[in-house]
């Protein structure tokens, strides 16, 4: 709303100023003595140079400052907003629900109709949290906790993206945001917090524990904490923080080609692993959902 008002006003000013300039250039010159010229020019300078900008600016600030104020995460009377923590990494999102202990990655589930306070920070460089259709952005700075308050008014899927240049794969740091009605959200949270995965049996499972599990956490199976939590990776719509759509076979493709799809990402190559093991692990990961 604010944008359209500003756009209209700005276009008006631009058109008027341009028109004045061009008209000033082309019009017929009436004879004018020095005194009249002085009077006219004073009018231009004061009216156009002083008054016009001052009034416009005052108007803008009058409207803009309260709007900004309303967006701030100030203390609320009554029900407290839900708290979620988001930590930025190069180049993935760590999402934690402190009240229930749920940890996930590259996706953010929100309840509809309730304010949510996101406490954001970073584990390495400066990132920025932004879901365009839900609100403004806030920087994720190592050593600091910044807070932004969002509220989804309808259920749906929204796209979030990192908005501060954070290195080679800043481009591929997409956050999948899903807003659910209250009961659906509660159900999801419950299912995730109770989720226990049984370990992958056999040699593939050993490979997982010895390699993948060192960095990735899967509830009940491994405790790595340097890479995205994979406990519900099968249910995600995208892989690699927005690189691949999570269709059947995508996980295997990711494991095999991730350096080509997202060059520079922190996961090492798996070329030394037995392709059958890789395939088994991929199939198993596809089953991981709450």
């Amino acid at each position: 709303m604010l944008w359209w008002a500003m756009c209209a006003f700005a276009t008006l000013v631009l058109v008027v100023v341009t028109a004045l300039w061009v008209h000033a250039m082309r019009r017929e010159r009436p004879q004018m003595d020095a005194a009249r010229a002085r009077q006219l020019t004073l009018r231009w300078l004061v009216g156009g140079g002083l008054l016009l900008p001052t009034l416009s600016v005052l108007l803008l600030l009058l409207f803009g400052i309260p709007i900004g104020h309303r967006m701030l995460p100030l203390p609320l009377a009554g029900e407290q907003p839900m708290r979620i923590e988001v930590v930025g990494h190069q180049w993935w999102w760590e999402v934690r629900y402190p009240d229930s202990g749920v940890v996930t990655a590259n996706q953010l589930h929100l309840p509809v109709g309730r304010p949510v306070d996101l406490d954001v920070s970073s584990a390495d460089v400066i990132h920025s949290f932004w879901v365009p259709r839900l609100g403004g952005k806030i920087d994720m700075i190592p050593g600091r906790d910044n807070r932004i308050r969002l509220q989804a008014d309808q259920a749906g899927t929204f796209r979030g993206q990192c908005s501060e240049f954070c290195g080679t794969q800043h481009t591929h740091m997409i956050l999948d945001v899903q807003a659910h009605e209250e009961e659906d959200f509660a159900r999801w949270l419950q299912a995730r917090s109770e989720q226990q995965v049984s370990a992958l049996p056999g040699p593939a499972g050993d490979v997982f524990a010895a390699r993948c599990g060192q960095c990735h956490r899967v509830a009940g199976v491994s405790e790595g904490n340097r890479a995205p939590d994979l406990s519900d990776v099968g249910a995600r719509s995208m892989l690699g923080a927005g690189v691949l759509s999570n269709e059947p076979g995508a996980l295997l493709r990711w494991l095999q080609e991730h350096q080509r799809l997202k060059p520079g990402n922190a996961m090492p190559l798996h070329d030394d692993l037995d392709p059958d093991h890789l395939s088994t692990i991929a199939d198993w990961l596809e089953t991981l959902r709450p």
């Binding site: 100023v17 004045l20 300039w21 000033a24 006219l40 020019t41 231009w44 300078l45 009216g47 156009g48 140079g49 002083l50 016009l52 900008p53």
Partner: peptide, 9 residues
């Protein structure tokens, strides 16, 4: 703005 209007004037 003052400069712009000085030019226009």
């Amino acid at each position: 703005g003052i400069q712009v209007f000085a030019w226009i004037a």
